[in-house]
Write a protein that binds this DNA or RNA. Structure first.
Lengths: 365, 365
DNA sequence: ACAAAAAATGTAATCCATTACATAACTTTG
DNA sequence: CAAAGTTATGTAATGGATTACATTTTTTGT
């Protein structure tokens, strides 16, 4: 780290000189009472147009701005909502966040973010901020059973929405996709291509998307009477990192009787499978098919383009915010479990089982 | 979108029943004055250990939590900082955000995020939140000349730090890398591999990283007496999208006398060049070398691994937060321009000019 | 044991906007 | 033109914590 040219910030001096203009000064300037000023500011109550004009002029002249903490105190609200996620480096969460912003900002709410990094301090933080009235509600992106300790006693007390990953038993609005179905349909799709040995890559966490997809996968394996072996379930680390995906899939690909296809609970993991397969000289999709989940933008940045489930992240974000605002404004709907649709994007990382057929297929698409 | 099982939220009912415990109730319970309770809560002033004990017990018994808006009003602070960026979908910004959080959270500050999407409402928002005392300071990730209108009159009035992209003329603390040098060194490096026709891919924005890299590039082109042609400068869209990168590089690669190397102002754009080259049957790096910027994790997810400049995003985030907190606490340092180091990660997307030599090199590494 | 110094605690003002209620000004109606 | 009804405006309480200053209690020194 290098230090640049010397520039002394005049900040200290300047800061002390800021004169704080309050509502009563505006009132004095306009020759009215504070109540009238407040009424103009809040567009409520009856004010004679000419009075309103005077007030507005005074506001401009004195460059008045509302002191939000004061208003918040009086109104007992904060005008902010909390978004709690494992991390925002994941483009998947970033997209949800975008949706939340687009819905909440126009409604006058600010977004506070907090990355829990998967550890349970999350609950403490969250409750802390709700109790401290720093936020009016929270959207949880990675709720798991582990959160019962802190969440259970507070459900119904504060506006909380579960988005994406969730725990069914917690009675909050939920905006989710049917993860079980993704697992089931992934297998179904691969079976339709002729695969019989299909692996599953999860992650070392209790996220519902991981857990339920595995269940869907297992159900499908049973239903279609496919090879059922513990060796076919592997796990990357809790954060779905590329390296952990490579490490997890390597022994499977080099062992005897490897699978001909795999379903991964995230795109990054799917990319790691494709990468590792290529490293080992295994052709994708001719010899090994890979299905991912999320449809991040990187899924189409190098060949083979990834076949993956597209989840409506942005829309889920918006819907979560919508639900949360309903709770905050005490107008929740009767239906609080909203299941968004997903769709399988068939691209280049999947093909028919058996090389020759596969080649023919991949050439056709 | 489908609606799930009917679950009526009991939220409405429960909410109304929350009894608000105030500091004076705690005082009464503990048999002391509010001042004493406050002193215990803030760990300031002298309080007899046994009194402190009584207060703490009362706090636990009544489940008291501080009303933050009230405290903030009195202390004239918000305990929050604003991070303004074009978007957080970009992993580059997400990483910076992570650094900011890790520094600011332990110091008791919450993080408010706002995606400006590159439009000038940004300034309005930012000033709005500072004036409204909703945040104690702001970190700007995409400051450009366009922001002068709103920013100039407020510099020194509010704690503001420029991170990453910046405008030199705005006298705020800056945490940056020397973008000019990245441009220069990219060319220098490519020249060392024997390249003489080197292109540059920028973006349709005024970000300093785009602008200054182009300047560094041009200077190097002059210094090394290389081919200097307008046709060698191309631009992707303002958001550095993959598709726009593909569109921009296509005519160049298919035109006559194409370059043998290109330097891109972002990794996603570099990946788009590699992609497009491969589509056209141009081998990377044997026939076409590509250098990126940012070193996002996707740079090493498929071959050829991208040669790129690694910027210390996380550390820049931390340092920005550190600087901002100094401003907020009125203890800015004498040096407010902090230049972080970058490093070129030489990987597989660059090679010697001329196929045979290039092959030899790529095999060696 | 008593004055002086130090420590602990309490009282009340303060931060600034909102809003219930009171009052004033203005219309309408018979 | 007065009474009743509307509409506009003002007064003062309120939200819940912090903190300067005042007062009480404890400790120290002789």
């Amino acid at each position: 780290m290098k230090l640049g040219l010397c520039k002394i910030s005049m900040f200290c001096l300047a800061r002390g000189l800021v004169i704080v203009v309050t509502i009563s000064e505006v009132a004095k300037e306009a020759g009215v009472s504070v109540a009238t000023v407040s009424r103009v500011l809040n567009h409520c109550g009856k004010v004679r147009p000419e009075t309103e004009q005077k007030v507005k002029e005074a506001v401009v002249k004195l460059q008045y701005t509302i002191n939000m903490p004061a208003r918040n105190l009086r109104k007992n609200e904060s005008g902010a909502i909390l978004v709690l996620a494992r991390n925002f480096t994941n483009p998947f969460y970033a997209k949800i966040l975008e949706g939340i912003s687009d819905e909440a900002n126009p409604a006058g709410y600010n977004i506070l973010v907090s990355a829990s990094d998967g550890n349970p301090k999350m609950g403490f933080q969250c409750i802390q901020m709700l109790e401290g009235r720093q936020v009016d509600g929270a959207i949880l992106l990675n709720c798991t059973e582990d959160d019962a300790v802190w969440l259970k006693p507070h459900i119904g007390k504060y506006p909380i929405v579960q988005c994406c990953d969730f725990v069914a038993a917690f009675d909050t609005p939920k905006v989710i996709v049917d993860h079980f179905r993704t697992g089931y349909e992934a297998v179904q799709y691969l079976v339709s291509l002729g695969h019989r040995r299909i692996a599953f890559m999860g992650a070392e966490n209790k996220h519902s998307c991981t857990v339920q997809r595995l269940e869907g996968y297992k159900k499908a394996i049973k239903d279609f009477e496919l090879d059922e072996e513990d060796a076919l379930y592997i796990s990357a680390d809790a954060n779905y990192t590329f390296e952990s995906g490579c490490r997890a899939v390597y022994p499977m690909l080099t062992g005897k009787n490897p699978p001909t296809a795999i379903f991964c609970v995230s795109d990054v993991l799917a990319l790691s499978c494709i990468f590792e397969a290529k490293e080992l000289g295994i052709r994708v999709p001719e010899e090994f098919s890979v299905v991912g989940c999320d449809d991040v933008e990187y899924a189409r940045m190098c060949h083979p383009f990834l076949s993956t489930f597209r989840l409506p992240c942005y829309e889920m974000g918006r819907e979560s915010a919508r639900q949360l605002l309903r709770c905050i404004h005490r107008t929740p709907e009767e239906y609080v479990e909203i299941i968004e649709d997903f769709s399988l994007q068939v691209r280049e990382s999947t093909g028919m089982a058996g090389k020759d057929v596969a080649l023919a297929v991949s050439e056709r698409t």
